[in-house]
């Protein structure tokens, strides 16, 4: 399945801002993060299609996944 992955803040270092990647059906947020070599403790905020979800949630074809490390408030 195809997932649009968006990375923010320090997670962009040596990776990318936004890319479309292919993952096995039923992959979870955590599995995508592992494939991108993002440590679990860096997964402060994970959104699927704009909705904040825990990392054990599964993605489906066409989803957009946004991943933020610990970030600030304003």
């Amino acid at each position: 399945m195809q997932i649009t992955v968006k990375l923010f803040a320090t997670l962009r270092n040596n990776r990318f801002k936004i890319e479309v990647h292919e993952y096995p059906e039923g992959s979870t947020i955590l599995q995508v993060a592992e494939a991108l070599e993002i440590p679990k403790e860096e997964l402060a905020l994970t959104l699927i299609n704009g909705i904040s979800l825990e990392v054990d949630n599964a993605l489906k074809d066409g989803d957009t996944l946004a991943i933020f490390p610990p970030v600030g408030g304003g």
């Binding site: 923010f8 402060a44 490390p69 610990p70």
Partner: peptide
């Protein structure tokens, strides 16, 4: 703390632009 120890020092409050937009 991730926010006060890392997020805010690195990017200031402006790091919220992308978060709030994504939501």
């Amino acid at each position: 703390n991730g926010v006060t120890g890392q997020g805010l020092p690195a990017y200031g409050t402006a790091v919220l632009i992308n978060i709030i937009n994504e939501a």
